Amino acid sequence: MKLHLEHVLSHFGRRRPNESRVNARIESKGWKNNVPSAARIITKWKPSGPIEIAMDSEHIEQLIYSQRWQGLTVMSTLEQGKRVIATRDFQPGEVVCDYHGRVVTAKEGRTIHKTTRLLFYKNCKGISMCIDAHLPKRDCHLEKETFGRLINHSRNHLNLRHRAYRMNYNGEVKDVILFIASKSISVNDELLFDYSVQRKSFNGECLKLCWF
């Protein structure tokens, strides 16, 4: 049982699998005897592998393109506006979601919209760029509002850190910013990260990102 458990756990690096994905993995390996249940495997799962290779996961790539991040919901109140809330537990080091939008130059970003829905950063070459997420829904995902653009700021209670990656998917290379749990996140916790700016707007500012 231990051998099977270790093999299955090592396959899911930075994103906790659901039971259907665990069962698919077991079936693909043809394991029949002394195989732990998918539910048991999930309880034993912990993020594994270097954070540098988080984007090597085909599953995470698919989630970025589909925006079908599970375990999150959006709540809205008159006092606090929209907030992103966890509907399941996340472990430290687990990829939670991405900041999704159209990548443009910083100059173009400043002319689009003066709003906190623009995220300015410097790419791996040191060039100022912008992820434009000011629209509630993107052309590529008309049926849903993406989570990353709604995550609020906190310096003292943040539970996410941001990391930048280059992703090559179907021949297309693009910048990707992932939100990774910096501590244990429980059900009903609000997701928070440090905008790294003094003002309420991202405009004219650049996040200090670690590039992988």
Rank of each mutant, 00 (worst) to 15 (best):
Q67G: 05
C206V: 05
G93S: 10
L191Q: 10
S182I: 01
T105D: 10
C210M: 12
L9G: 05
V176C: 02
R117S: 15
Q198N: 12
V22P: 00
F202T: 14
I42R: 01
D132T: 09
G126I: 07
S186P: 06
P17H: 02
H134N: 14
Y169I: 15
M1T: 05
A133G: 06
A39F: 07
K82Q: 13
N188H: 06
C206W: 09
E94G: 11
R83G: 12
T73M: 11
L142V: 13
I26G: 00
R83V: 07
K107W: 08
G13R: 09
K82M: 08
P136G: 08
C210N: 13
I64R: 15
D139S: 13
L72S: 12
S28R: 00
E205W: 12
I60T: 06
T105W: 03
Y165K: 12
F12D: 10
M129Y: 04
L78C: 11
C97P: 06
A164W: 03
R14D: 01
L78A: 15
V173G: 15
I53W: 03
K29I: 02
P47S: 09
F202G: 15
A133I: 00
T115L: 04
C97R: 07
V96M: 11
Q67C: 10
D189V: 09
R68I: 03
L5D: 09
H7L: 14
R163T: 14
S184Q: 10
I53F: 03
V74L: 05
K32W: 00
Q198F: 06
H113D: 15
P17S: 07
I151C: 06
L178I: 03
R110C: 05
H11Y: 04
G204Y: 04
I42V: 02
Q70R: 07
Q91P: 05
Q62F: 06
K200D: 13
K44L: 04
L3K: 02
R166E: 14
E94M: 06
D132W: 05
I42G: 01
H113N: 15
V84G: 10
E145W: 08
T73Q: 15
P50A: 02
V35L: 00
Y99S: 13
G148M: 13
V103I: 12
V197L: 01
Q70T: 04
P47K: 04
C210R: 14
V173C: 14
L119C: 10
I112N: 12
I85G: 11
H113A: 08
K174I: 06
L118W: 02
R155F: 08
I60K: 04
G101N: 09
N33G: 00
K107G: 15
H4E: 02
L135N: 13
I85T: 06
T116E: 09
I131Y: 10
Q62K: 11
T43R: 03
F193V: 07
K144E: 15
L3C: 03
I177A: 08
L160N: 11
D194L: 02
L5K: 10
H141V: 11
M167F: 11
I41W: 00
G126D: 12
K174Y: 04
D175P: 12
W211Q: 14
S57P: 07
K46N: 12
T146Q: 14
H7T: 12
E27N: 05
R16D: 01
R83A: 11
N123D: 14
A39V: 08
L158F: 13
F212N: 09
F12K: 08
Q91W: 06
L63N: 11
G109L: 01
S196E: 14
H11N: 05
N203A: 10
G13A: 15
W31K: 00
K2D: 10
K208C: 15
